[in-house]
Structure formats: structure tokens, C-alpha cells
Design a protein around this nucleic acid. Structure first.
Length: 425
RNA sequence: GGAGAGGUGGCCGAGUGGUCGAAGGCGCAGCACUGGAAAUGCUGUAUAGGGGCAACUCUAUCGAGGGUUCGAAUCCCUCCCUCUCCGCCA
């Protein structure tokens, strides 16, 4: 959420920064609302002060022996009543403005970080570095073909159970999914992350807090009879873990790792990635999340990205790191590194993790502050996938496929999976 | 789902119409005492918004929202949540 004081005092800055995202916004209307709201508040609180004074005086006089029904008190009552009426009118007006202001403020994305490179679309993203040797050969299969051959999953039965874009894993497939979740959680907790297993149903306040609502309601599955939604990412419950809290500065940074299933409607993506594990309505993910002191978010961003990369390295999966340009940034992000894993069968890099610093955007929406000494400030939040499990499995299948139809797994997974190979049954 | 009890500051807890943002205690911070510490004493210690260079000051907030009143933590209404018992249940 944008800072309403910034809207009042420097709307040009907001227009300029949102312009870097490719948005053309005119904030003069909003600025006017913000100013009116402030003026109204000033008038209202002044009147309330008068009313309070009268109220006290009535009490004092009555206690001093004045007749509660006498003329003297009646006169004050009359004044009090008048003030009350005026205040009610002002308050009403003010509430409307405040609600409108907040609603508008919630609809704007975060301002990009100064360090975020300008650009219009994903074509302008900057490759930052690469790791590993991508396997490039003719005749390699895509992961869904391998999965089919090894009977790791069944899409048709999944349609029977749910609908398209759901997957049911079997045997070695189910086991590998479980192994990957455990492997990733252990890797991150080994570095000091606190493990969290949050609720998968979240309320709308939580979704507002992390930025999914009100704008992206059509992307989220909703429980019709309750104010509950299926979480699209563990980022949502993790943000709300500290909603409306003031975290003592000596406790920062707080670093959490959470496994959760994620649910997305993927509205408007018909026809894309329809086969396999890349784009599903339900998928598993291990998510990293930091609450940091605002002065340390830059280092934290480098670190959370490195922590996500460490998973790919441990799994011996080649990848590249892209820095997203302003035009490709997510709604809540100020700056983002995407990790793209090499898919040998598809012969392409595919996103497997997105590591973002959200500056104070989510913290303001969720009212998460920290306090050192006397000053209370909004914290900064960061999130990064560490990693998306299904896509990791896809990468393991494509990069580890062998001529004999088996799939070789990295050594790091052996203790979790039980052996170093997926075998045809 | 049914019946009952309750939601007050970081925590405990008092407060049933008046000067209450709220006694008291704990915790925490500072100061004094001490060689140092404990104990003790004193002082301070909520959040948000507005005004002010600042000291400071105004407004709101006692689960949330509405109402009665000159005045509400206290009375009324609605909702939410927690606890206990019963029912159901992995």
C-alpha cells in the first residue's frame, strides 16, 4: 500500500515511480481526497475538544452542587448537543473519504526500488548470472513424457477426482515429491530458518495484507460460505503471522520457511503449459520469508536469493538468475530476482523461484512495525520460493534422464528418496 | 451444533455513568544507593492520526461496529473471538 502522506505531500514522486512500471497515473484526484480528509479531521477533532470540555464542565458543576435540571446545566447541554450534531456530520464525511482513500491506495502496486532496472516487459529483464552446465542434446524427453513412462503421475484420473490441471502422483512420483519437500525444509532450517506449517485456508484480511486482495480475487479459490480462501502461496499466511504486531528490533531479522500446498485459478492461462507439472491449480512449494529492519533489506534480498539458489546447487540443477525490470515486477515487489532452472527436455529455462523484496508495502498493509528506542517504523518483508516442488521435479526428470529410461537423481536426495535413481516399474 | 462464562495496556488485574488512556502489581528502561550485583527507592514506560522547529499539544482507541447521554471501559443492540461443559469428530 502506498503511504498516504506521500500521496498528500509528493504525488509527483508516486506518478514518476509507477511510471517506471509502465503505468500512467494521475494522482491529483487522490491527493485532493487526502487533503480534504486531513482538513476534515482537523476541524472534527477541534470540535470534539470543545465538546469534551463542555462535558467535563457539566460534571464539575453538578458535583459542585448545581441543579442537574437547572438552566445553567441545560445551557451547556444544549451546546454539547449542537457540537455533537456537527461532529456527526463531519465524521460521516470523513469516514467516506477515508474509506475511499484506503480503497484506492490498496489498488496501487508497490513503488519499484531505485535499484530495479527500468524496462517495459519480461524482454527487458537482465540476466545476472548462471550456474551449472545445461545439458543440451537431441532427443531428450520433456518431463511429462518421462513421468508417463515411469508412471509417476496420472492426469486423467486427476480430472475424474477434481478437474484438469490437477495432478495425482503415484509410487516413485509421490515419494520424490515428499523427498523434495523434506530435503528443502531440512536445508533451510539447517541455516537457521524457523519451520512453519501454516493454515492453508486464509481470511481476506490476510490476503489484503500481502497484496493479493482486492485486486486479484479472480486468481484465488474461495470458500463460498466463509470468509476463507485457499492460499495461493505461503507468503500470505507468513505475512499475517505478524500482522498488527510491533516486533522488537533485536528480534529482527525473523526468517521463516514454510511448506504449503498452493492453489491458483490460473485464470486466463488456458492452453499454456497444459501438460505436466509446470502450471497446476494445486502445487506444493517451500517458501522463504523474512521480516527485516528497513535498513537491512538490501543485504537480506541478496541472502534470500542465495538461499534459494543453494537448493538448485545442492540438486545439481543448472540455472540462471534474472533481475526483473520495473515493467515485469509483481504487484507487491520493489525488486525481484527470478531463478530459472534449465529444463533439458524442453531446451529452455523456466522460472522455479521468485525472490522479492517488498520494502514496506506489505508491512504497511499488514501494520507490521519494529521499534528501536522511541521510533516505530514499518519493517520490510521479503519472500522467495525455495523452491516450487513440482517444477523442481520436472527439472530433475528432464536433466537426469538416462538412455535406459531411468532418471538419475542427485546425491543430496539419496537420504531422502532412498536411492539415486527412478526406475521403470 | 446446544448451554454457560468471559474479552481492559507487553503481561496479570481493578474499575458498573462524570475530571479514566484507565488503580495496583509484574515486566522493561533510566537514575540513586553499591567495589560490583541483589534488594530497595525514585522516575519513566501503549498505538494511530492531526498541529508545532521543538518542548509540547489536540483527537481517537478498554474485542469490532452501531445506539442512548452534555459525558460510556461502565447502559442497550448486532457481530467476532476465547474458555468450560454437552454433542459430533480425524
Amino acid at each position: 500500500m502506498l503511504d498516504q502522506r506521500l500521496v498528500r505531500d509528493n504525488p509527483e514522486l508516486i506518478s514518476r515511480e509507477l511510471g517506471r512500471r509502465g503505468m500512467d497515473v494521475d494522482l491529483t484526484g487522490l491527493q485532493l481526497i487526502a487533503q480534504q480528509q486531513r482538513d476534515l479531521e482537523e476541524r472534527r477533532s477541534g470540535l470534539q475538544a470543545d465538546g469534551n470540555r463542555i462535558g467535563k464542565e457539566v460534571g464539575q458543576r453538578i458535583q459542585a452542587g448545581a441543579d442537574p435540571k437547572g438552566a445553567e446545566v441545560a445551557e451547556l447541554r444544549q451546546q454539547g448537543n449542537q457540537i455533537k450534531q456537527t461532529v456527526a456530520v463531519l465524521e460521516d464525511e470523513e469516514k467516506q473519504l477515508t474509506a475511499r482513500l484506503r480503497e484506492e491506495l490498496l489498488s496501487y502496486p508497490n513503488l519499484p526500488s531505485e535499484a530495479c532496472p527500468d524496462g517495459r516487459s519480461e524482454a527487458d529483464n537482465k540476466e545476472v548470472r548462471r550456474w551449472g552446465d545445461p545439458r543440451v542434446e537431441d532427443g531428450l524427453m520433456e518431463h511429462w513424457q518421462i513421468a508417463e513412462q515411469l508412471s509417476l503421475l496420472d492426469t486423467e484420473r486427476s480430472v475424474r477426482i477434481a478437474q484438469s490441471r490437477f495432478v495425482t502422483l503415484f509410487g516413485q512420483g509421490a515419494r520424490l515429491e515428499r523427498a523434495l519437500i523434506n530435503f528443502m525444509l531440512d536445508l533451510h532450517t539447517g541455516k537457521g530458518y524457523r519451520e512453519v506449517l501454516p493454515p492453508v485456508l486464509v481470511n481476506s484480511a490476510s490476503l489484503k495484507g500481502s497484496g493479493q486482495l482486492p485486486k486479484f480475487a479472480e486468481e484465488i479459490f474461495r470458500c463460498a460460505d466463509d470468509d476463507l480462501w485457499l492460499t495461493p502461496t505461503a507468503e500470505v499466511p507468513l505475512t499475517s503471522l505478524h500482522r498488527d504486531e510491533i516486533i522488537p528490533s533485536e528480534q529482527l531479522p525473523l526468517r521463516y520457511v514454510a511448506y504449503s500446498p498452493c492453489f491458483r485459478r490460473e485464470a486466463g492461462s488456458y492452453g499454456r503449459d497444459t501438460r505436466g507439472l509446470i502450471r497446476l491449480h494445486q502445487f506444493n512449494k517451500v517458501e522463504l520469508y523474512w521480516f527485516v529492519h528497513p535498513e537491512h533489506s538490501e543485504e537480506a534480498h541478496a541472502q534470500i536469493t542465495a538461499d534459494a539458489e543453494a537448493v538448485l546447487k545442492a540438486l545439481e540443477l543448472p540455472y540462471r538468475v534474472l533481475e526483473l525490470c520495473t515493467g515485469d515486477l509483481g504487484f507487491s515487489a520493489a525488486r525481484t530476482y527470478d531463478l530459472e532452472v534449465w529444463l533439458a527436455g524442453a531446451g529452455a529455462f523456466r522460472e522455479i523461484s521468485s525472490c522479492s523484496v517488498c520494502s514496506d508495502f506489505q508491512a504497511r498493509r499488514s501494520s507490521i512495525r519494529t521499534k528501536d528506542g522511541k521510533t516505530t517504523r514499518l519493517v520490510h518483508t521479503l519472500n522467495g520460493s525455495g523452491l516450487a516442488i513440482g517444477r523442481t521435479m520436472a527439472a530433475l526428470l528432464e536433466n537426469g534422464q538416462q538412455p535406459d529410461g531411468s532418471v538419475k537423481l542427485p546425491q543430496a536426495l539419496v537420504p531422502y528418496f532412498g536411492c539415486d535413481r527412478l526406475q521403470p516399474e
